[in-house]
Simulated assay, not measured.
Amino acid sequence: MKLSKFIRVSTIFMICMVLLSNIIGATMPEKIKIITEKEAINTVQYDGNNISVHRLRIEGSNNVTYCLEINRHYPSGHSFTMSTDMNEKLNNILAAGYPNKSARELNLDNDNQAYFATQIAIWSLFQGYDVNAIKSQNTKILEAIKKIYTGGVAAKYNSIFQSRIYKTSDESVQDVVVISYDDLTIEEQVESMESEYPPQEG
Rank of each mutant, 00 (worst) to 15 (best):
Q119S: 11
R164V: 07
Q127Y: 01
G152I: 01
K135D: 12
K156A: 09
G151M: 07
Y149K: 06
Q137L: 11
I160P: 12
K140G: 11
K89I: 06
T139M: 11
S83V: 04
N71A: 08
N138C: 04
Q119H: 07
N138R: 08
I165E: 06
A121H: 03
L108W: 09
L106P: 09
D109P: 00
Q119Y: 04
N92C: 12
L90H: 00
S83A: 10
N100T: 12
S163E: 07
I70N: 10
F116T: 05
G77W: 02
A121T: 01
I70S: 08
I165Q: 04
L108F: 10
I145E: 01
T81N: 11
S79R: 14
G77H: 03
G152T: 02
Y115T: 09
A114R: 02
Q137R: 15
E88I: 10
Y166F: 09
S124H: 04
A117N: 00
S163C: 10
Q113T: 06
M86H: 06
A121E: 02
K140C: 13
N92H: 14
K135V: 13
H73I: 09
S76Q: 11
M82F: 06
Q127G: 01
A96K: 02
H78F: 08
Q113E: 15
E88A: 08
E105P: 02
D130T: 14
P75C: 01
T139I: 13
A103F: 09
F161G: 04
L94G: 01
A96F: 10
I120W: 01
K156S: 14
N112D: 13
T150L: 15
G97T: 06
K147N: 12
R72V: 00
R104G: 13
N107D: 15
S163I: 02
K135W: 07
N91V: 02
Y98V: 09
Y115H: 04
I120P: 00
I70K: 10
I165Y: 04
E88G: 00
Y149H: 13
T118F: 03
S76A: 07
A95D: 04
Q137E: 14
T81L: 10
G128W: 03
F80T: 08
A121I: 03
